[in-house]
Design a protein around this nucleic acid. Structure first.
Lengths: 162, 162
DNA sequence: AGCAAACAGGACTTCACAAGTCCGATTAGG
DNA sequence: CCTAATCGGACTTGTGAAGTCCTGTTTGCT
C-alpha cells in the first residue's frame, strides 16, 4: 500500500511533543519516555522503542541515569520527514532494486526495471526531504485554533477538528 | 521501510513489456498472460494477478475467450507511476489517518498528527504523478545500450549495467 | 554506600498483509 | 453445438512488522 510504518508515525508525534514548552524550565528540554507516553497517548514501550531509534540516528540525545531522558538535538525546522523515516525505518528504498537495499533483487529475469525505480525513489526522497516537522506542526492546527505559545499537540485536536 | 509492494514492481515491468513492439502486427497489441510471463520472467500466475488489477483500474483492457489477452489502453507517456501504484496497491495512504484509508485511526489520543500526514501524502502523490512509465523506460537503459527497435526488457540488463 | 529511577540492548510472541496458487465462469472460434 | 483458451474471483501459505517484556548499565538521591 505504499505505507510507512506506524513507528514513523509515532516518531513524528513524539518529536512534536518533545518540542513543546515544558512548565518548569529546569528540565532544559529533557523528557522521559513515560512523560512522552502520557503526553501522546502512545504506549510507553513503543515510545521507548521509537526513542531508541531516534537516538541511534542522532536526532535526539539520551541522558542516562536518574533524572535522565531524551532531548532534541535540532530544532523542528531542521528535521525533515525523510530524516525521521530514515531513522526509524532505515534507508528509503521503495523497490528491492535500490541502492541501500539489503537484498539486491533475487530474480534477475524480472529485473528489467533495474535502475528505473531509482528515479522514483529519488523523487520521493526529495519530496520527503523538503518537508520539515515544523511544516507539519503548522499544518496540524489551523491558525484560528492556535493561540500563541499554547501547547498545540496536547490539545485533543481530533475532537476539535472533527 | 516505506516500500511499495512487489506487485507494483511487476506491474511496471509488465506494462513496459506490453508496450514493446510485437513481431506479428496481427495481434494488434494484444498479449496473453503466458506471453508476458515469458517475456518478463515473472511467474505466470503473478502476471495474471497483476493484469487483473490493471484491468480493473482501466489501464489495460481484457479480451476474453480464445485468442484473447490484454491490451494497453493508453500510451506509456500518459500512465504515471501513481496510476500504477493506485491500481495495484489501492489509494496511496502513507499513514493511517489519510483520506481514503480504510481504518480511520483507531487511537485518538496519539492522533495529534491528524491532518499532518496529508501534506506529506500529497507531496508523494505529486512526485509519483509527475513520473510516467515512458520516463522510467528512458531511465532504464542508457542510450548506448538501446539499439532502435530492440526489445529492451528482454535484455539481462542487470548483468550489463553492473 | 545503598537504593531508586531511567536508558540500552536484545529476544520473543502475536498477527496482519502480501505473495503466490488454484479452480470455476465466460467467451470466441471450429 | 462443442471445444479450447482465457479472464475472474477465492484460497492457502509465508514473511515481516508491531508490540511486549526482560536483563544489564548508568546516574542521581538519600
Amino acid at each position: 500500500m505504499l505505507r510507512l510504518s506506524k513507528l514513523t508515525d509515532y516518531a513524528v508525534v513524539v518529536l512534536l511533543a518533545m518540542a513543546e514548552r515544558v512548565p518548569e524550565p529546569a528540565s532544559a528540554g529533557v523528557r522521559t519516555s513515560p512523560c512522552l507516553a502520557g503526553a501522546t497517548g502512545v504506549p510507553e514501550p513503543t515510545v521507548a522503542k521509537v526513542l531508541k531509534a531516534l537516538s541511534a540516528a542522532g536526532l535526539v540525545a539520551s541522558l542516562r541515569g536518574a533524572r535522565g531522558g531524551y532531548r532534541l538535538m535540532r530544532p523542528l525546522e531542521e528535521i525533515s520527514v525523510a530524516d525521521v523515516v530514515t531513522a526509524v525505518d532505515g534507508p528509503i528504498a521503495l523497490a528491492a532494486c535500490i541502492e541501500g537495499a539489503a537484498s539486491p533483487c533475487e530474480v534477475h529475469h524480472s529485473c528489467a526495471a533495474k535502475g528505473q525505480w531509482q528515479l522514483v525513489n529519488d523523487a520521493v526522497c526529495a519530496a520527503l526531504g523538503a518537508i520539515s516537522l515544523a511544516d507539519m506542526r503548522e499544518a496540524a492546527v489551523p491558525p484560528l485554533l492556535r493561540p500563541s505559545g499554547r501547547p498545540v499537540t496536547s490539545l485533543p485536536f481530533s475532537q476539535i477538528a472533527e
